Amino acid sequence: MIARRRANPGKAVLLIAAVSLAFLAVSAAFNWGSCQWYGYQTERQTKFAPYVGCMVRTNSGWVPRTELRTTQ
């Protein structure tokens, strides 16, 4: 008779957590890089803020890049 392996749910949870963390790290690196590239292209001072995104320095202070058109 062929022996069956029992699935280990602990390993599955760890695998899903590791894949999720890897995805978050790659996503954060891409967002930071695109923010830096925007600053390089426009010759503006930029910074990446967690939970907000790319921030651009204007005369009135730091503004999220997505709201930049409404403040200019």
Rank of each mutant, 00 (worst) to 15 (best):
S34E: 04
G39M: 07
G39A: 09
R5E: 14
K11H: 08
I16D: 03
T46Q: 04
R44M: 06
I2C: 07
L24R: 10
V13H: 06
F30Y: 05
T58M: 05
L21F: 14
W32N: 09
Q45W: 00
V26D: 02
V56P: 00
R65L: 15
T71C: 03
N59F: 05
A7Y: 11
R44L: 04
N59I: 00
V63T: 10
Y38W: 10
E43V: 06
V63S: 03
F23C: 14
A18H: 10
F23V: 12
C54I: 06
Q72I: 03
P9Q: 11
V52G: 04
T71S: 11
F30A: 06
Y51S: 11
F30D: 04
N59Q: 05
G10M: 06
G39H: 04
V63N: 00
L24E: 12
E67L: 14
R5D: 10
T42H: 15
A49R: 10
P64D: 12
G33I: 00
Y40M: 14
Y51N: 02
V56N: 06
Y51Q: 06
N8T: 05
N8R: 08
A18F: 13
S27Q: 10
L21V: 05
R6S: 15
T66Y: 09
G10F: 06
Y40T: 13
N59Y: 00
E43N: 14
G61V: 03
A22S: 14
A18R: 13
R57P: 03
S20H: 12
K11D: 09
A25N: 03
S60K: 10
T58W: 01
T70I: 11
V52D: 05
G33A: 12
P50A: 10
R5P: 01
F30S: 04
W32T: 09
R44T: 15
L15P: 02
I2G: 04
R4D: 09
L24D: 09
G61C: 02
A29G: 07
R57Q: 14
Q41N: 07
A7G: 03
R6L: 13
I2N: 08
Y38R: 07
G61R: 02
R44H: 02
E67F: 10
Y51L: 15
W62L: 00
P64C: 09
P9S: 11
R5V: 11
P50V: 06
A29Y: 12
Y40W: 13
Q41R: 12
A28N: 04
S27I: 01
V13T: 13
L24G: 12
S60Q: 11
Q72S: 07
L15A: 11
G53T: 02
L24C: 13
E67K: 14
A22C: 13
S34I: 01
R69I: 01
G39V: 07
Y51M: 15
Q41A: 02
P64H: 08
G53P: 08
Y40R: 13
V56K: 06
M1W: 00
G33T: 07
N31A: 14
R69C: 01
Q45G: 01
E67N: 14
S20C: 14
I2P: 15
S60P: 01
S34Y: 00
A29Q: 12
S34G: 00
A7C: 05
L21I: 11
E43G: 08
R5T: 10
V56C: 01
L68N: 08
E43Q: 14
A3N: 12
Q72L: 13
A29L: 12
R4T: 11
R4V: 08
V56F: 08
L21E: 10
T70M: 08
Q36T: 07
